[in-house]
Design a protein around this nucleic acid. Sequence first.
DNA 1: CTGTTAGCGCGTTCAG
DNA 2: CTGAACGCGCTAACAG
Lengths: 338, 338
Amino acid sequence: MATVQDVAKKAGVAPITVSRVVNNSGYVSKETRERVEAAVTELGYVPNTLARSLRSKRTHTLALVLSDITNPFFTLLARGVEDAASDAGFTVVFCNTDESEKEERRYLELLLQKKVDGILLVPARLAADSVSFIQSQGTPVVVLDRRLSEPLTDVVRCDSETGAYQLMRLLLQLGHRRIAILSGPPHVSTAIDRVAGCQRAMADFGAADLAVDVYYGSFTHASGGQMARRAVATEPRPSALFAANNFIAIGALRALHDLGVKVPEEMALVGFDDLPPSLITFPFLTVAAQPAYEMGEKGTRLLLERLSGKNGDPPREVVLPVELIVRQSSGNGPGKAG
Amino acid sequence: MATVQDVAKKAGVAPITVSRVVNNSGYVSKETRERVEAAVTELGYVPNTLARSLRSKRTHTLALVLSDITNPFFTLLARGVEDAASDAGFTVVFCNTDESEKEERRYLELLLQKKVDGILLVPARLAADSVSFIQSQGTPVVVLDRRLSEPLTDVVRCDSETGAYQLMRLLLQLGHRRIAILSGPPHVSTAIDRVAGCQRAMADFGAADLAVDVYYGSFTHASGGQMARRAVATEPRPSALFAANNFIAIGALRALHDLGVKVPEEMALVGFDDLPPSLITFPFLTVAAQPAYEMGEKGTRLLLERLSGKNGDPPREVVLPVELIVRQSSGNGPGKAG
DNA sequence: CTGTTAGCGCGTTCAG
DNA sequence: CTGAACGCGCTAACAG
């Protein structure tokens, strides 16, 4: 592993001159440049970014901390982050927390020690502790997908509340009166906001005989299945289910199928998050679709902006719209054919 | 950002003592330890891994270079990598090459400059250039999912050949005589091996009137759709399609649906890679399923072993078995009901 | 246009 | 049990 020193010696110049050639910084005469470049290729010199970072205080590395990259929503978000980061010459470290506060903290400590230039965080909790911890080390952070209890930093998220409102309005206007909401963890903003959106729709379009149960679980297909089973077992049985994310919807759909409950004829189902066309041959679920890729991209761009000076600015909140996509699973109303 | 110096001053000791406390190395009296620890928490000291790495030559960072994390096969593989790395206190950088040799090279240069401790590579080409480039910098590398033309390093992959053999045997035994193989890029080992597996099955179980076309495209649903359309347009029309990966299968299924060709009644379809149960409610495709998560995990463990001394050993090749899962899409044979 | 000096923050080496 | 000195590889800051 050749170093600047070696190259300098070989080219008969000072180390700093090599540095200047390699980084295209400062003035170097054409001749010396050529001499240095020759030495570089001859020795197979590869600059050591570690040492560079120690001096320059920039690692050109971002971190993406999310719950589970296995969820296609987050996969797409991650791809958006990586593409935007890569364009700017940044590299991305990814960390799965599985919504665990403890894991999140562990990772953040690790990342701060590594001196990543910035962190993109999908926080496991509404509470802003993690963000203020990151900020206490002077590291910029952008929150993705979720709200914080306090506006400590830039946030890029989707309008969960409106999305849920639209889905619930659809169900109510179709005539559903008994509905079960299968939500996520009660401490995650998206779960909270989606329930809130449902409730606003209920206030606007609900009838007197409306009966809505809210179940809190986790954003997994196992949990979706369990909540669906509990909902189906209640008397009188609901005629529609609202799933707070894609995994919950799929778990619920599977459970309904196993129970022999036909969707949408016997039970309507709507959910959050769409699956990309590369994954799903026959789209069936009525959903509020979120622009996951754009979220990752936009968040990364905001973070990079912060890194390149624009810091003093107050925290921004970018709320991207969700798109209501009506398909078969929402049906034509209770008791009617799908 | 407090440094060892600051902590040392505050605790009235030498910097090295702080280092010893933080790293639990060497002897430190209980008293001094407590004094140092107090200073650490008071100043919110976070060790700078960069400086540490510069001396120790270990970054505790791995890189995962793959084609597209958006493919659930690779997503799962990535999760396996991350889990195994995280257990060992390592962090993972991920890079999408989209099968582009140029992008791959660009990333590898970046990663080597960053002095990652090891690289997990899903190579875009059969040729071993990338691997030898990595090795020329003294960085250990493990190849995932694909073969190399030369056994330069550890490889963890699945038995594509046998998987394809089993799928093709199934089609032949069901009585199919006209089959189209929708393959991936001809320079990628998995695409090559799957075609080879098909051909071996054809040699073993083929009849005289067998007619098999091989199409080469890319591992995307768009390409799968295109190849399926071309295959359907040939005269006489094939009665079965073999898709070399999940995206190709989904694209083909979609195209067949759009063309009004019923699967499996009018056209059987088999493919590689299964989708996880969290994504798919009603499994339909007959597939050769690969243990993606285990592949990532195993590859990471091999890499970590190499990092912790066990280097001299000759390159190993771990070939994991694929599982044939027969579902509806393969049907009951040409001309028969599904 | 090029070089000197110094130091980023830490940990190894060797002394006490 | 504790500390001083030095250097990992690179680049700011300041000369010349």
